[in-house]
Design a protein around this nucleic acid. Structure first.
Length: 560
RNA sequence: UGGCCCAUGGUGUAAUUGGCAACACAGCUGGUUUUGGUCCAGUCGUUCUAGGUUCGAGUCCUAGUGGGCCAACCA
């Protein structure tokens, strides 16, 4: 597969290079390492697609590893949600791992470092330590505890482990270089005391390793070859390598950390703090609100795993700053849903249409389920004298660019007949309340008559009033009015919340939808893609608009 | 103000590693269409600046400019 001549991203170039000079293909191994402290979002999705995609490309295993080194923030609930989301995206991990699986090993290695004089227990306050750290332009100063004896360090560290000390009284630090230009190398903390129960190890431990100490060593334990993370971890690489130097057995794989730029999506925020703020301030209804950029939100909105994977693949991966327009994500849902979503008819903004010369009680017309997919078959939709059409599809008069219904003009009712608008009635305020029309009985769709073959410029969707199902329709728009809401120095991202990001309306849909199930996805013809929300009941259908159809008419009418 | 990373059409990403700057989206034209959808065809438009090396530079070197990251007992 790696012989494919399709272009490679910079990480694939690195891997190809490593394959030539070092590793064999069957040694390759990747990992996706979330911290179980929140819900996964679209940014994680591209990291998941990157790591698991590499696994698929090279036939290499990919571990799902939970970076659970901070019991203050992590919960089992998040572990479960993360697993569900990764699975939903369509990926299978090789083994499920936890940094907490390695607490004992990490402890043993830490003891080794102490014995070698490469780590020491510091007993200062965090404020004092911060003050000694220096700044990017000034060197730090050594802690007064830096030269404790190995014996004392060993005894204290053991005491820390045994719970003899309160939180904040001691930490274990690596003894590296207090004047290193890289601040992370100025005697970084390896362990802190936390008297908190951990969702997996419970109270077995009261000292917990810091990210830098745990991450690289976990990669090493798992023999991950390429440990990929976002660019803000670049300064950590030096420390990652230093920690590996201390324990690396040259007969084993030495993991490499490499960094890529996180993908930024326009009109959204992804930081956990900000997403939480949206939830807590009730701007959205929860982590899975269809407007949220979380995987669970996208799922509820009606996005398909394929569309997200395709999106991740087209945006690619690189090292530069980026802001990807959400419309690209929308393109990919449309692209996929166009192929798989059954077509149905629903009217969201109804206007009554009466066919004055229609004499039948009702009839059931044949309707194609999906013109993109012959195997999708067809269904019957009821037709009768009184229908709903969209308000926007009728005007008393209009210019030639308006293909829809106008007085004296003709259109085809999708799957039905050609009609001609004869008159309309209005209320006291001048709003059109009903349109009267006549139909050509010989023009029935699919009948093969000359009349049925006639071309008319417009085709409208419709529903038969007496057969229609009432449904709640939730129309979503971007959550933020600004394309990059959290990058303004003078304004808070909450200032850009779009007040119209949700509109709830009542619509009328064809009766074939009666038994639609939660998560079913359909195209309301000429309107967009919709899916059945979990709030739906047998009494009342609830649809989410996933995304509208591409709308050329909106552009034309905007111009004039 | 120290160290490090980055810079290619409107957006995102490529460029066989120094050899004709391409792909997707968006835009615009037209065609097909019982969805103003889809599909098809065409079109628009790009290497931050200044030097240097070279027969040849998006790619290498130097300087500049612009953007980003780094001082949590977070990850």
């Amino acid at each position: 597969m790696s012989e494919e001549r399709s272009s490679l991203n910079f990480l694939e170039h690195i891997i190809e290079e490593d394959l030539k000079t070092g590793y064999t293909k069957d040694q390759l191994r990747f990992r996706f390492p979330p911290e179980p402290n929140g819900y996964l979002h679209i940014g994680h999705a591209s990291s998941i697609c990157l790591n698991f995609g590499l696994g698929l490309k090279y036939g290499a295993p990919v571990n799902l590893r939970f970076d659970d080194t901070n019991p203050a923030k992590e919960e089992q609930e998040y572990v479960d949600a993360i697993k569900r989301d990764v699975e939903w995206l369509g990926f299978t991990w090789d083994t499920e791992r936890y940094a907490s699986d390695y607490f004992q090993q990490l402890y043993d290695w830490a003891v080794l470092l102490i014995q070698e004089g490469k780590a020491y227990v510091d007993s200062q306050s965090s404020e004092d330590m911060a003050a000694q750290k220096g700044s990017p332009t000034e060197a730090g100063v050594p802690s007064p505890f830096r030269d404790r004896s190995v014996e004392e360090n060993l005894a204290l560290f053991q005491g820390m482990k045994e719970g003899k000390f309160a939180e904040g009284t001691h930490v274990l630090r690596a003894k590296i270089d207090m004047s290193a230009p890289n601040m992370l190398m100025r005697d970084p903390i390896m362990y802190r005391i936390l008297h908190k129960a951990h969702h997996r190890t419970n109270t077995d431990w009261c000292i917990y390793p810091m990210y830098d100490w745990a991450h690289g060593e976990s990669d090493y334990v798992e023999q991950v070859t390429h440990s990929l993370c976002t660019l803000e971890f670049l300064p950590h690489r030096e420390l990652y390598d230093w920690f590996l130097d201390q324990i690396h057995d040259t007969k084993k794989i030495r993991p490499k950390q490499r960094e890529f730029a996180r993908r930024n999506l326009s009109h959204t925020v992804v930081s956990k703090r900000k997403l939480l703020q949206l939830v807590e301030s009730a701007v959205v209804t929860g982590w899975d609100d269809p407007r949220m950029p979380t995987i669970s939100g996208l799922r509820r909105r009606g996005y398909t795993p394929e569309s997200i994977r395709n999106f991740a693949e087209t945006i690619g991966i690189a090292k530069r700053e980026n802001l990807i327009d959400v419309s690209l994500l929308e393109f990919h849902v449309r692209d996929h849903l166009n192929k798989i979503a059954p077509r149905v008819m629903g009217v969201l903004d109804p206007l009554k249409l009466v066919i004055t010369n229609y004499a039948e009680e009702e009839e059931w017309l044949e309707a194609e389920n999906n013109p993109e997919d012959a195997a999708a078959g067809s269904r019957k939709v009821p037709f009768s004298k009184e229908l709903y059409i969209e308000k926007a599809d009728f005007r008393e008069e209009a210019n030639r660019k308006f293909f829809r219904l106008k007085l004296g003009g003709e259109v085809r009712l999708k799957n039905g007949y050609i009609i001609k608008a004869e008159s309309c009635t209005k209320d006291t305020e001048g709003n059109i309340t009903e349109v009267q029309c006549t139909y050509d009985p010989k023009s029935k769709s699919g009948s093969g008559t000359d009349e049925s073959l006639r071309k008319v410029k417009g085709t409208l969707h419709w529903v038969s009033i007496k057969h229609a199902l009432e449904a709640e329709i939730r129309l979503y728009d971007r959550l933020f009015t600004d394309e990059s809401p959290d990058t303004h120095k003078d304004k808070d991202f909450m200032d850009f919340v779009n007040p119209d990001s949700l509109k709830v309306i009542t619509g009328y849909v064809e009766p074939s939808l009666k038994n639609a199930k939660v998560q079913d996805r359909v195209q309301f013809q000429r309107l967009g893609y919709f899916c059945v929300d979990p709030d739906s009941t047998s009494e009342k259908l609830v649809f989410n608009r996933t995304v509208g159809l591409r709308d050329t008419w909106a552009k034309i009418s905007e111009k004039s």
